[in-house]
Design a protein around this nucleic acid. Structure first.
Length: 426
RNA sequence: GGAGAAGUAUCGAAGUGGUCAUAACGAGCUCGACUCGAAAUCGAGUUGUCCUUAACUGGGCACGUGGGUUCGAAUCCCACCUUCUCCGCCA
């Protein structure tokens, strides 16, 4: 959420920044309602001041046995006015809040301006793309042939966009989860969290999924709760409505969770394989930091995510997203894209963002720079570290052999009970 | 799922219709005094937020949350949430 005071004082600046995200006129209604709201607020507060003083006067008069009926009558009248004004103010606040909750974050000055991914900028790439002396297969064919991925039976259980992992396929998924967590905990200093996979609507609003993207999520029928679309939601909301001390920052948090996405608008995209699923596994990285450090922390966080791909020797590139391609809550985002031979293209495997104080303001996460100082909003960052299912797909495709077997990357072998290769079972 | 109890500042806790919410009292924390230094002791200070303003200038709001009653609500009424205890059920 943007700062209402900032919009009020610099509407032209905010409007220009929103233009970079291809949004215009989003502030017009807010500015009108805001003026109205402040006017009514002043009125009602004057009346409340009168009521407070007059009520005390009544108390005094009654104590000394005098007649207070005149004052009581005038306060009664004022009370009715207050009630009417309060109702009007409440409905204005509802509308203003609804507007603010649907305005995305402002892009950082270093973000390239553009309407979509065409304007993304390649920052760096790593690793050698492998030359195949045979026609490489797609991961869904490799996985099906090896009987480690079973899309047909997954469809029987749950419909489209689900996968059953079997045998060494399931083992590989689990190995990757543990490997990623261990790297981030032991080498990068993150604290492991195992959060709930269902969270309240307040959490979803805190990180920016609600109210605008409700249709992308799975909601429980019994109560106002949602399956998490990413561990970013519970991790960032851990400190919702809290004031942290400076010593508590920075917080580096990591969690493995399944992620659940309804993906309302994505029918027909990536229909085969494990790339786009209703349920997938991810190891997430979240940082809660002081504002002055957040961009340096974004670079480190992105490097942390890259590290696991380097250890797996998977070629990738890092893209700086354009203003038109960034997510709702982000001020700046790097996508990490892994090389997928069957696509002959890089596919997103991680997205690392600095949300600055956008989520902190929504979730009311603050800290005190010094013991007596006024609380300030923290900056929050998140990044995949990285998507597990897509890592499986990338390993299958990049490590495939001509006979259809898969070499297991060195770094994972100890997590696979020493297995070095996944071969067809007899 | 059933019965009961409780939610007030950093913590414990008092307040049960008005000059006790800038929140009693106790603890913690910060600063100061005493001290060679520390402990003990003594003194002072310790919520957040919104509107307004040149200005903590003036005011509003917040006692779990949301309503209601009243001239006036932490206090009375209703609903909900959370925690605890007991019972039931359960991996």
């Amino acid at each position: 959420m943007l700062d209402a005071k900032y919009i009020r004082s610099q509407p032209d600046v905010v409007e220009a920044l929103l233009q970079k995200r291809n949004i215009s006129g989003a502030l017009d209604r807010f500015l009108v309602l805001d003026v109205k709201w402040r006017g009514l607020l002043t009125q009602v507060e004057e009346r409340k001041n009168f009521r407070n003083q007059a009520s005390q006067e009544v108390g005094r008069l009654k104590k000394s046995g005098e007649n207070a009926e005149d004052i009581m009558e005038s306060v009664r009248k004022t009370g009715a006015e207050i009630k009417a004004l309060d109702e009007e103010i409440a409905s204005l606040e509802l509308e203003i809040n609804e507007i603010l909750l649907r305005i995305p974050n402002l892009p950082h000055e270093s973000v390239p301006v553009g309407i979509d991914e065409e304007s993304n900028i390649s920052i760096r790439s790593w690793g050698e793309r492998r030359e195949f002396n045979f026609a490489p297969l797609a991961h869904w064919d490799l996985g099906t042939n090896l009987d480690i991925l079973d899309f047909e039976r997954a469809a029987k259980l749950s419909g489209a966009r689900f996968t059953v992992y079997k045998g060494l396929g399931a083992r590989l998924e689990r190995a990757i989860i543990n490997f990623f967590l261990d790297v981030h905990i032991e080498q990068h200093g993150y604290k492991e969290i195992l959060p709930p996979f269902m969270v309240s609507a307040e959490c979803m609003q805190g990180t920016g999924q609600l109210p605008k993207f409700a249709e992308d999520m799975f909601k429980l029928e019994q109560r106002e709760m949602y399956l998490i679309p990413t561990a970013e939601v519970p991790l960032t909301n851990l400190y919702r409505e809290e004031i942290l001390t400076a010593e508590q920052l920075p917080q580096y948090l990591t969690a493995y969770t399944p992620c659940f996405r309804a993906e309302a608008g994505s029918h027909g995209r990536d229909t085969r394989g494990v790339i786009r699923q209703h349920q997938f596994n991810k190891v997430e990285l979240v940082k809660i930091v002081t504002p002055e450090n957040s961009y340096a922390e974004l670079e480190k966080l992105t490097a942390n995510a890259e590290k696991v791909l380097q250890l797996l020797k998977l070629p990738y590139r890092v893209m700086l997203l354009s203003s038109g391609d960034m997510g709702f809550s982000a001020a700046k985002t790097y996508d990490i894209e892994v090389w997928m031979p069957s696509y002959e293209a890089y596919k997103e495997i991680s997205s690392c963002s600095n949300c600055e104080d956008f989520q902190a303001r929504r979730a009311n996460i603050r800290y005190r720079p010094e013991a007596k100082a006024k609380p300030q909003f923290v900056h929050t960052l998140n990044g995949s570290g990285v998507a597990v299912g897509r890592t499986v797909a990338a390993i299958l495709e990049n490590y495939q052999q001509e006979d259809g077997s898969i070499i297991i990357p060195d770094a994972l072998q100890s997590y696979m009970n020493g297995a070095k290769v996944i071969k067809p079972e007899k």
